[in-house]
């Protein structure tokens, strides 16, 4: 099994695109991020759901005090307005320049090893500059389950 067999094709974010459209694509394809292409057509970085949320609505001090936060915060009361504000921004300030990619003919083991090495849950699949899609850890696990529907002694826990 190669990476290309479980690659999830997605669109590429471009300059001036709204956060809303990127999020919609991520939710539709069930991927945590999509790549970003600059005006010269180069893959310049990525837009990730986690990082965009962190930078737009989660100040450092809130993360630090996560357990202390109550249900009465101002930003919770205005949640809808805040969400609209974030979604209607252009994605350009949220581009992360660094991204990890893998070739389509790589093995799945290599893919999850690279994910582990870089502490991430997805890789962009590209072949000589041509973007093909995203491979996620979830997609690898989905494949593992699909090809091993039944355990040798189903219903008995294996040690």
């Amino acid at each position: 099994m190669k990476v290309e067999d479980i690659t999830i094709p997605t669109t590429i974010a471009t300059e001036g695109m709204l956060v809303k459209d990127v999020f919609r694509e991520c939710v539709h394809a069930q991927v945590p991020a999509i790549p970003y292409r600059d005006r010269n057509g180069e893959l310049e970085g990525r837009i990730s759901i986690r990082d965009t949320l962190k930078r737009s609505c989660l100040p450092e001090y809130m993360v630090e005090l996560a357990y202390v936060l109550s249900d009465k915060l101002t930003c919770i009361e205005d949640a809808e307005a805040k969400a609209r504000e974030v979604l209607c921004q252009v994605v350009d300030p949220y581009v992360i320049p660094k991204f990890y990619s893998i070739k389509p003919d790589s093995t799945l083991l290599r893919a999850i090893a690279i994910m582990e090495k870089n502490n991430c849950s997805y890789l962009f699949v590209a072949n000589e500059g041509e973007y093909l899609g995203v491979v996620t850890r979830m997609a690898v696990v989905r494949w593992m389950i699909e090809v091993n529907e039944n355990c040798p002694s189903d219903g008995v826990a294996q040690n």
Partner: peptide, 11 residues
């Protein structure tokens, strides 16, 4: 009131 609703014990 919002400050008073903080759950300091959860810290």
């Amino acid at each position: 009131e919002r400050i008073l609703s903080f759950r300091e014990r959860e810290a």
